[in-house]
Design a protein around this nucleic acid. Sequence first.
DNA 1: GTATGTGAAATGTTTCACAGCC
DNA 2: GGCTGTGAAACATTTCACATAC
Lengths: 261, 261
Amino acid sequence: MTAQDDQLDAVGVNADQRSAAGAERPIPDATVARLAVYLRALSGLVETGIATVSSESLAAAAGVNSAKLRKDLSYLGSYGVRGVGYDVALLLEQIRATLGLNEDRAVALIGVGHLGQALAGYAGFATRGFQIAALFDADPAVVGSQLRGLRVLHVDLLEQVVRAERVAIAVIAVPAAGAQDVCNRLVAAGVTSILNFAPVVLAVPAHVDVRKVDLAAEMQILSFHDSRKSARAEDAQARFSDEQPFRPGSGDASVSMAAAK
Amino acid sequence: MTAQDDQLDAVGVNADQRSAAGAERPIPDATVARLAVYLRALSGLVETGIATVSSESLAAAAGVNSAKLRKDLSYLGSYGVRGVGYDVALLLEQIRATLGLNEDRAVALIGVGHLGQALAGYAGFATRGFQIAALFDADPAVVGSQLRGLRVLHVDLLEQVVRAERVAIAVIAVPAAGAQDVCNRLVAAGVTSILNFAPVVLAVPAHVDVRKVDLAAEMQILSFHDSRKSARAEDAQARFSDEQPFRPGSGDASVSMAAAK
DNA sequence: GTATGTGAAATGTTTCACAGCC
DNA sequence: GGCTGTGAAACATTTCACATAC
């Protein structure tokens, strides 16, 4: 990455990491990307009331193999019990702590078109430690309207509000043409983490961390694999039609991931 | 990240690749993910009328370093001219061909909520070799309505239409609860490439390629890096405020990517 | 007995640095 | 002289396989 995630992934992390308690191994980027996936799988287990889980079954639920999962978790410390497995609640808490999800971060969302509204309405947003501090748009028709209990502000107020609300993370959901400008203003106002949905490569100073979600790129990657498949699959194709469906969490279905990469 | 991923990235590609002309090196997943980025950068150059570009400037526009770009392009063959650079139109065409964007692929979009509508309206969709063949939803209030010149069909017709239209790629934009079911039906109908926006890990047979776009995961990865930064940055913070903005395409700004991965 | 945690090997990716060509 | 193309080195990630602990 996505690979994808993704993806081959983030950048701009300080080389030395002095963490709360003592000298720990640095956590690989690839592992960080998967921790988020494990978190989701663990939340599912909590709801079903399962208290303990083996690396084997958690890995299956997350779509990775168990050796990778164990290696990933080993970077957080030793929170499993040999011969038994992992305590779901404890592991969940450790991952949350590692990802910094306990102190909650103010998020600004710029652009409330269809995409922006989809993002604002995203359930996992509020529940998973992020709270939307402000919504912005440039369109006078939208500014002033109410969305999810927040008034949409004019983008001219961006710097002012970002500073006042101490926004840590900004999500850019504006058209391509406006994205770099919005980005510049965010950076100038002190934002150092940006999630970009606009189809442009943003130029930022080295201390700013940008992650990009790019529909066209994802489609093109699928297209690449698809074209390689279709050449060879011309005949095999028929065999896979009307095959029995798969049950979620069943066995070792190999599923690809975005990740960041 | 990438991935990001990239997204650390896709899966399910056949080991041996017998391509149109002779034995070529297999293309790394990480490279495929970036080809899509180069494609965008090249499109930008075409519009400004630039006919030739060096690896150095194309790399800057794409947010990678030039050695990586040259290595990536070398997997496609030798389409550059030493001492000169790459012909923009030729390179663009070669990348398009490699990604399989010349034969155009039918895409089905399942779920036309805010996200689905944002995706349907996405400009790069129509223009970049993908055409939406069908829209589906389960909500009777939406079924039958018109969107981008297409009638929204009831999801019950999914198998039938997917087969009739020879849909190659499906985009899942339904709520989490419905995603696995939709996925099963797509697979049964013969779809082997899926882009999933629902926040669940889909279980699929090994021959099906799933890429996932996960807002919560992206946010959490940013959160991780942000929390590492904020500990150390408490004082440095002030220095970066009100810094001069950056110009797009300027120099070597290191930008992260999702990817593919 | 069972399942974690982890060195070591294998594999994949990025960067270096320079030969080769225009 | 300038810029591509690419082996070889450096680095990162995944997988293996087993010692270790319950």
